Computed example of a mutant assay.
Amino acid sequence: MSSEESATAAVVPMGAAFFPVAPGAVTRKYAFILVPGFTLLAFSSAVEPLRIANQLSQQPLYQWRLMSEGGAAVASSSGISVCVDGALAPLGRDTRAFVCAGNPPQAAAAAPVVALLQRHARFGGAVGGICTGAVALAAGGLIGGREFTLHWENQPAFCEDYPELSPSAKKFEISGGVMTCGGGAASTDMMLQLIAEDHGAEFSAMVSEMCLRKVMVGVEQEQRSSLSVLIRSRNPGLLRIVGLMNAHIEDPLTLEDLAQAAGYSRRHIERMFLSVLGETPGDYYRGLRLDRGRSLLSTTDMELLEVATACGFGSVAHFSKSFKARFGMAPTKYNRRLVRGGRRGG
């Protein structure tokens, strides 16, 4: 029996709500490839809109199967294991193949997973990545010249590993036969868009209502809240300075440079930071750089010197001292703790 013949039958559960779809619609096939540490929220947020579409229409609009490298159940980042339908196997051209990943992102780049995606794309199949699934696409050379994204937490490390590629800040990207999203609720956003393309915006809106989502696709495209929300201020000068700080992590700007760019005096900037953020500009900037360092230590295998340099510190000693002051432990101890825990994140 072929992998397509043994695929899980489309699930069409009963429900009170109903939205008619023209009968005889072709069943769209999906394959979700689970890798160790995949994010359960992102995975379920991708599957549930397909189930709801089937339920609303009372038709097998969508069919999905789960796969893993060895065919065994896969542990998610929450420690909950999910059983799959079988091991990796060639897929029909009409199947959309998604890699569901999380932390560690490198799990998505397992050679058998990458090889399957390359073969599928070579024969005209659509491929995608959920959460950090884009790492598999990058490793397979499948996203060059296309818009793509992955979870914002993992983007700095991704850019270190693939400096020639630039992920977007959007929740999801659909670029030809490549589909990616940042995970979490963004998986639902992406699927709602795909459902709209298949069966119309009104049907997709009803699926969204069933998910208790009142904000429709395209309204809030960015993964993260606006900077003004994050720092609880709408002061344009402060927003510009913090924006510049975030854009210059590896090559920190001086306070004089920041003051000149914002059009304020140094003293005014210091008062503004203390009154709004409760710390000096230097302390706030150093915190941003150290947070980036912690992220790189968590999600990459970069050497300590490389991490320090990527965060704009002139020496490992300076980085280590600052890191310990902020996080309560030396970066080497923090890194060893992650290695013992398998580098698994939340």
Rank of each mutant, 00 (worst) to 15 (best):
S175L: 03
S6G: 15
R146G: 09
V207N: 13
S225E: 12
G237W: 00
S204A: 15
R292Q: 14
T8W: 10
E306Q: 14
P112S: 15
Q155L: 06
G71Y: 05
P156F: 05
R224T: 00
L150S: 08
R271Q: 08
D189F: 13
V242M: 15
R93A: 13
S68P: 05
L165M: 06
L61D: 06
V47F: 07
E270Y: 13
C100F: 06
G183A: 04
A136G: 09
L274Q: 06
C131E: 06
M210T: 01
F18D: 02
G86N: 11
L91T: 06
A186F: 10
E69I: 05
D94N: 09
S228V: 00
F203Y: 09
V127G: 12
V207W: 09
A196N: 14
M1Y: 09
P104F: 09
R294Y: 03
A126T: 12
Y284G: 08
R292W: 04
A247E: 12
I80S: 12
S168C: 07
S3M: 01
G129V: 08
L305M: 13
M216H: 12
E279R: 10
L305A: 15
E164K: 03
A89R: 12
V74P: 13
I231E: 03
V82N: 01
S45I: 02
E160Y: 05
F19P: 03
M14R: 07
P13Q: 03
Y62H: 06
F148Q: 06
C83W: 08
G278D: 06
G176Q: 03
A136D: 06
G15I: 00
A186Y: 08
A308K: 07
G86V: 13
S320G: 12
A110T: 08
Y334K: 01
M210C: 10
L288W: 01
P252E: 01
L116Q: 12
R96Y: 02
D94S: 11
D291P: 01
G237R: 05
F203W: 02
E69Y: 00
L304D: 10
G128D: 09
